[in-house]
Design a protein around this nucleic acid. Structure first.
Length: 702
RNA sequence: GGGGCCGUAGCUCAAUUGGUUAGAGCAUCGGACUGUCGAUCCGAAGGUUGAGGGUUCGAGCCCCUUCGGCCUCGCCA
């Protein structure tokens, strides 16, 4: 055995076929602990270090142990011609000349292709080795194709195929042939055919992946995020990326056809501390000043209207530094739209056609246009929330009138204090046990601030006629009142009535999620059912009791309906805005409004929001100034692209529709962002990190 | 900032409720096998039970601290 030093380069031909290339060997063999070079029947070299420049063809040797066990007996397995030459510090382009270039993808071949020669490239999805016959399922993003290796076709290629492992990257040449009768695989689109391989090229080996790509079990998400490149190989994830691309493509095509321009707006902008927390970026040139990443391009798109661009759209990244949720990331993507000389109906009709096209082209779902509309008040009354899930009925009913007349202190007391009693009828909910209701459901609504949940099961009366709500509180109700309850909810035998008594806001806050939960648990939702609705007629303001001022329900640039403009001076709380939200299955996927284009009205709104003239000038001065130079009437909308893709892919996790998402604590597990930076970087920005600025011991120090 | 769930082999999960040497399936490695397709069969290897401390004769299990992930309330004009 002879140690070969670092300056020998070996090129290997395999039966005269240059199936392997020098540079590829390098990457193939980097992870090896040992390399051996065979010449004749001798082991010529053994070498350990990873960084060796020696290249050789030894595709089956896994370890020193393996080689020792086989010893020199390995020789008959190898028939390489081996040529040495001095290392000239160059790979001389050998790697690119002979690579098998693919002719088809792995989801493409059908019976009609039988007989043709093809080259496929991809990842080894699985291997089934029968000793002589070897089957490889080769995977790329388009699908799987079965490759067959038979020693009778090409002995050496067959031998190499036995060493292939999952996730190795290969290219293979062969002939498409039909599978024998009864051997088709109906699970695969390409299951009618297979490719009999006579040439193969190993483009790269792979470490055993940290989790199986082809596995049905749910893998720990932390692991998936740290190895996102593995996770994204899974067909399910590739489909989500594909759908996301399709949506973006449809959006661009649609708006282009409709005469919209895609215009980019800055990522480094001005902080306007309203709404969510900003992500800040320090300025190097102006010490002590900061850019903010955009929460949305709201002001820029309105300025574009003043600039006469007329019809604008953008698929744009937005940033809000708030805690994430299952359907919320700090960094997310909007389909942002704005148009001039329009009223609310114009914006609505264009955009429902857009959404209809997306759902038609991606899912083949026909969405009825025009999409129905309900008012904010209707939504709050019937569903307790401004984004109602209309896939099932189960409307909330106010029973304050009945409750006021009963003798149940919790109900009457609440009403005396100005609260309400509202409830819902869960069809078939009578099957819930007392513990289901009084523990599980009561705890559930307690999270939303409700103090208790009253219930009644609707059963047949004792005399066998009529329906009577039964429960521990039914004794506080007269027979007539019980009858009224049954009628109000149109309850049937076996239903469950649930009530919450509190301030109206609290009642709605508790009952809305309870309704959705029951809808799921009672199986009231059909799979792949989509119910679209525009929620309209929002109030312009809501009263903020803590701050003693009005807040915008939408944002401060939303226009009131024209006939309510006089109320800005008299009765702001009752003003109706020109805002609209598109809601699908209880999820808000988009929202927008007609904007204020009159500087005088904008000023009045700022007054009501308790934003002083000076504050308004500091924050939005540039924008208010723009409005003074001939702003057209305009309005727009923004859709949440991530949420739309979630709906289209039936996903309840926003991270699954983002290629490189962050965790709930805002970390990227792949890159380990955020990270500390060099002192030099901080110095350049004139920044200093105060590590313990908030600990009492520090502040008390003299 | 608050509440909840979780962390055991590479992965997914067990471990008779504090008791002997922490098990299984899949993956990995070795062997056999010419029609499989989540191949099969035989064999092997694989563990600081997230980390640190405590209680105990004895801790995967109980207590405290801490790290990480997920869900959620607040927050998200």
């Amino acid at each position: 055995m002879l140690i070969i030093d670092d300056c020998i380069q070996v090129s290997v031909n395999f039966d005269g076929h240059p199936l392997f290339h020098i540079r590829r060997f390098h990457s193939l063999l980097q992870n090896r602990t040992h390399l051996l070079v065979l010449l004749s029947n001798q082991v010529v070299s053994q070498n350990g270090p990873k960084k060796s420049r020696i290249h050789c063809c030894c595709p089956v040797w896994k370890s020193e142990h393996h080689i020792r066990r086989r010893g020199i007996d390995l020789y008959p397995l190898f028939r390489y011609s081996v040529r040495f030459r001095p290392h000239k510090n160059s790979y001389s382009g050998l790697e690119s000349t002979n690579m098998l270039k693919r002719t088809h993808n792995c989801g493409q071949l059908r019976l009609s292709d039988v007989g043709i020669q093809v080259i496929l490239s991809g990842w080894v999805n699985s291997y089934r080795d029968h000793g002589n016959l070897v089957f490889i399922d080769l995977r790329d993003r388009e699908g799987l194709t079965q490759l067959v290796f038979n020693p009778e076709i090409q002995k050496e290629v067959h031998r190499i195929s036995r060493d292939l492992r999952c996730e190795w990257v290969i290219a293979a040449h062969g002939v498409v042939r039909p599978r024998g009768e009864g051997l088709e695989n109906p699970k695969l689109a390409t299951g009618q055919i297979e490719v009999a391989i006579d040439k193969i090229e190993i483009l790269n080996k792979a470490k055993t992946p940290p989790f199986d790509i082809d596995v049905f079990e749910k893998v720990n998400e932390e692991l998936r995020l740290t190895h996102r490149y593995i996770d994204l190989r899974r067909p399910e994830m590739q489909n989500k990326l594909r759908v996301r691309h399709r949506v973006a493509k449809i959006v661009r095509d649609f708006f282009d056809e409709e005469g919209y321009w895609e215009i980019e707006t800055p990522m480094l902008g001005k902080s306007t501390p309203e709404g969510a927390r900003d992500f800040l970026v320090p300025s190097r040139l102006y010490k002590g000043t900061f850019y903010a990443l955009p929460q949305s391009p709201q002001l820029f798109k309105q300025i574009l209207m003043v600039a006469g661009t007329d019809k604008y759209f953008q698929i744009v990244r937005c940033f809000r530094d708030e805690d994430p949720r299952a359907d919320r990331q700090a960094e997310f993507t909007q389909i942002d739209v704005e148009m001039s000389f329009v009223q609310a109906d114009d914006v609505i009709s264009v955009n429902e056609r857009l959404v209809a096209r997306i759902f038609k082209e991606v899912l083949d779902v026909n969405l009825p246009v025009p999409v129905p509309r309900i008012s904010y008040k209707e939504a709050m009354d019937n569903y307790g929330i401004d984004r109602p899930d209309l896939r099932f009925d189960m409307k909330l009913k106010d029973i304050s009138d009945i409750a006021a007349a009963c003798t149940f202190k919790v109900f009457t007391g609440t009403i005396e204090k100005g609260g309400i009693v509202k409830g819902l009828c869960a069809p078939g909910g009578g099957k819930f046990s007392r513990s289901d209701i009084e523990k599980t459901l009561t705890n559930f609504i307690a999270d939303f601030g409700a103090k208790g949940l009253a219930w009644m099961k609707v059963e047949k009366g004792d005399d066998g006629s009529g329906l009577v709500p039964k429960s521990s509180i039914s004794k506080f109700f007269s027979a007539e009142q019980l009858e009224q309850l049954v009628q109000r909810f149109e309850a049937k035998e076996g239903d469950l009535l649930l009530f919450v008594a509190d301030k109206e806001a609290t009642v709605n806050k508790a009952l809305a999620p309870l309704r959705v939960r029951l809808g799921h648990e009672l199986g009231l939702i059909r799979p792949s059912q989509f119910e679209f609705v525009w929620v309209v007629d929002f109030p312009l303001f809501e009263w903020n009791e803590g701050e003693k001022r009005y807040d915008s329900l939408h944002h401060p640039f939303t226009a009131p309906i024209p006939q309510d403009i006089p109320k800005l001076d008299t009765d702001p709380a009752s003003i109706c805005s020109q805002a609209y939200d598109m809601v699908v299955n209880g999820s808000e996927i988009g929202g927008g409004s007609v904007r204020i284009h009159d500087p005088a009205i904008q000023a009045k709104v700022f007054d009501l929001l308790n934003i002083s003239r000076q504050q308004a000038q500091e924050r939005f001065g540039f924008f208010l100034k723009a409005l003074e130079y001939g702003a057209p009437p305009h309005g727009g909308i923004a859709f949440g692209l991530d949420r739309m893709v979630m709906l289209l892919t039936d996903t309840d996790n926003i991270r699954d529709v983002i290629a490189f998402p962050k965790t709930q604590r805002g970390q990227c597990l792949l890159t380990e962002a955020p990270s500390e930076v060099d002192k030099a970087q901080l110095d350049e920005l004139n920044l200093r990190v105060q590590k313990h600025s908030h600990t009492p011991s520090d502040t008390q120090r003299p």
